[in-house]
């Protein structure tokens, strides 16, 4: 008796959210799955034709897509690695100060709060090859000017550095918060055992925040894999396609050129890749929840 009313309450509480999500996500997903098998061109005057896997075949033969895919994977790996590593280092550093932690964590958070559009534009001003501040400073030392955003050797890394600049504070904040939860007693015990700073970090801090590190890594992988705004404003994928990303590829084909069918195929592939990257996490998380939830 109690159980039934309980289930009713559960449905009442959870169904509005699920209803909204279902309408907004399942239909679109079914659509792109279907579109990806057709030659749907949005401006076409005739109805789309079913072409099975032609879009997928064309996609994997397109060297520009493969390049965008490679860039995106490489960018994601490098950016996330440095963001998490630096975030961890800064969290340890900030935590080692007796005073001013609050002020420090507030000001360091600023880059993460800015809209990516603004971030890209500020850096464009600073990186300019003509009167940009960074090249002016280099000039004082007799160096440069470096054409940061248009030189094939630097453009990828310039965008990488901007991303690291913006999101290291994000990793810092989550890891710092996690460190707040480590019982002080563990450090004291370690220190009695004669552990130095490094040993304290290695045997107390790290094991305690390891799960958080994985979590931050996953969050950043998900977001970095979508990289679009910075590239679209700063390099348009160039030079020599070295900064092209998958989202940008889909945007060009789908939104600019209206090739809905082809862009849908690319979306499906992108979705599968990110699912593959996050599969371990999903499986683990889902199992744990199932156990707890049932």
């Amino acid at each position: 008796m109690k159980k039934k009313s309980n289930a009713l309450y559960a449905y009442m509480m959870s169904s509005p959210a699920m209803l909204v999500l279902t309408v907004l996500s399942i239909f679109p997903l079914l659509f792109i799955l279907w579109y990806s098998l057709t030659d749907y061109y949005y401006l076409s005057t005739r109805p789309p034709r079913f072409i099975l896997f032609d879009n997928y075949a064309k996609l994997f033969q397109d060297r520009y897509f493969m390049q965008a895919l490679g860039n995106t994977l490489r960018f994601t790996a490098l950016a996330v690695f440095f963001e998490v590593l630096l975030g961890l280092a800064v969290a340890v550093l900030v935590k080692s100060f007796k005073r001013g932690q609050e002020a420090l964590r507030t000001v360091t958070l600023l880059p993460t709060l800015l809209p990516p559009v603004t971030v890209a534009l500020i850096w464009q001003i600073m990186l300019s090859n003509n009167y940009g501040l960074i090249n002016n400073l280099l000039g004082l030392f007799g160096l440069g000017p470096v054409n940061w955003l248009m030189d094939v050797n630097t453009a990828f890394y310039a965008i990488l550095v901007i991303d690291i600049w913006q999101y290291t504070p994000f990793a810092f904040l989550l890891l710092y918060a996690a460190m707040q939860g480590i019982p002080q007693g563990q450090y004291e015990a370690a220190s009695i055992d004669g552990a130095g700073r490094w040993a304290q970090f290695r045997y107390v801090t790290l094991p305690n925040v390891l799960r958080n590190v994985l979590m931050v890594t996953l969050l950043r992988v998900i977001d970095t894999f979508r990289l679009f705004d910075k590239v679209n404003i700063l390099t348009k994928g160039g030079p020599a396609n070295t900064t092209a990303t998958i989202t940008q590829y889909i945007y060009h084909n789908g939104v600019n050129m209206f090739k809905v069918g082809f862009a849908s195929a690319a979306s499906v592939v992108m979705t599968l890749i990110i699912l593959f990257l996050a599969a371990g996490y999903i499986r683990q998380n889902f199992k744990a929840r199932e156990k707890a939830g049932r």
Binding site: K236, G237, P239, A240
Partner: peptide, 8 residues
Amino acid sequence: RGQQGNPI
């Protein structure tokens, strides 16, 4: 004006 895409 050698940026990839429309500019170049």
